[in-house]
Amino acid sequence: MSRTRDIACGVLGLALASAYYAAADAIPKSLLADEVGADGVPKALALSLSLLSALLLLRAVRVRNAADDGETQQASALQHLRALGLVALGFAYIWATPHLGYLLGIALLISATALYYGSRPGLSLVLSASGGAVFLWAMFAKMLDVQMPAGIWAHLLG
C-alpha cells in the first residue's frame, strides 16, 4: 500500500517539479534583478523537489515489502468520493454566494454541510443554520466590516 503510494507521490512530484520549473523559466527578466534572479530560487526548489521525488521513487522500488509507516488505514474509493463531495459543496457555495448574498449563502452552506454529515432535516436544522448565518454575518459584515457579497438583493431592493 505504502509502496504504490510512494511511487505515485514520486511521479506526481516529478511532474509538478517540471511544470514549476517551466513556469519559473517564463518569469520575465528584469534589469532590477540580482545575480540570483527572480527565477533562481524557484529553479533550485524545482530541482530539489525532483531530486526528493526521485529518491522516494527509487526507495519505493528498491524496498519491496516495506512495512507500512503505521499511518491510518486506507479509505475506500467510495469514501474518497464522499470526502470530495464536501469540496464540491464548498465550490457550490463560492459560486452561488455572489448571487445569493453572504447571509443566505452561508445559511445554505451550513444546512447542506449538516445534511451531508447526516443530520435530519427539520426545524432545528433550519434554526441552527439561520442562527449561525446571522451570527457570522453580524460578526463579519457588521462588526468587523469585512466586505461580503450582498448578492442580488441589493439590486432588487435598492
Binding site: 514549476y20 519559473a24 518569469i27 528584469s30 532590477l32 534583478a33 530560487v41 524557484p42 526548489l45 523537489l49
Partner: peptide
C-alpha cells in the same frame, strides 16, 4: 510550502512570479 511562498511579487526585482 516554499514553492507557495514564491508566489507573488519578487523581493528583489519586483516582477510578479507565478
Amino acid at each position: 510550502g516554499f514553492m507557495v511562498a514564491t508566489i507573488g511579487t519578487d523581493p528583489v526585482s519586483g516582477v510578479s512570479r507565478f
